[in-house]
Design a protein around this nucleic acid. Sequence first.
DNA 1: TTTAACTTTGTAATAATTACAATTTTAATT
DNA 2: AATTAAAATTGTAATTATTACAAAGTTAAA
Lengths: 146, 146
Amino acid sequence: MYNTVNQLKEYLINYNIKPSTIRLKILEYLLNNPIHPTADDIYKSLLDQIPTISKTSVYNTMDLFADKGVVKVISLDGKVARYDINTCLHGHFKCRVCERVFDFPFSSKIPTPKELNGFVINEIDINFYGVCQNCKKIKEGRFSHR
Amino acid sequence: MYNTVNQLKEYLINYNIKPSTIRLKILEYLLNNPIHPTADDIYKSLLDQIPTISKTSVYNTMDLFADKGVVKVISLDGKVARYDINTCLHGHFKCRVCERVFDFPFSSKIPTPKELNGFVINEIDINFYGVCQNCKKIKEGRFSHR
DNA sequence: TTTAACTTTGTAATAATTACAATTTTAATT
DNA sequence: AATTAAAATTGTAATTATTACAAAGTTAAA
């Protein structure tokens, strides 16, 4: 847990971002809630602590964070943008039942397909969709007593 | 090229879809323009031939096509939905300069990460982002004379 | 303590998509 | 061919995420 303000400040400074109240609060939220939140999730969660916060500020901050590399923007199913504080290469699994997003690692030595020879690859997104273990169990349970 | 109406009709019937004028025209467009078009692309392209076509009809048709498996819905960069008539497993590369989308194959024997043991995987999206060969060349040319 | 730069906010605009009712078309049945 | 029910198509309005932008507030340096 990153609880001290100084730790959070340093985190931002390392990314060349001036620490402001909102930025620190959003960063704290992201670090303590690595659930790939949407802008709306972040906005709603901070409303208690910062009653004057606006959604535009959340978007501004997230754009800045994305530009500076603090977060990676992910989009699953083409829906709302989600923000991932874990910017290392990893895959995402989205459960189509509970809508939760899970991380999983994958070998970073993906061979470049020869079809992309001469292309510059800046970013790789690997997204799986299906039913998570938990929802699968619940579903099975629902019908097992027939 | 799938030009005969009968070929197109059969194509839809194989997917359990009643062939209507719009559906045939959209299918024809998709088959002859495998450029991962958006709903708007489709709409604009058919306006000449079917001046009464509505965007809602395009969305309806594409939803039906997606449900029945005629197309796969892809979304790159979390932007507009695009429709891919090639439903076999393959990856997408989106050029951040010209915005074009390229296909590439990848080994279908992706090992399931152990983190997803017990999960049901229904769908896999592999998306790369960067600069395509063509745009790279253009960019290099622009500065090479300095 | 003034000033300039930056941050935050609020409102309005945009764009993709969906909801839904009304109309049109199609196909089956008399 | 006329009737009718089902299906397809259309148009309009609503919704939602996001962006644009100007106004207000804050911060930090001079």
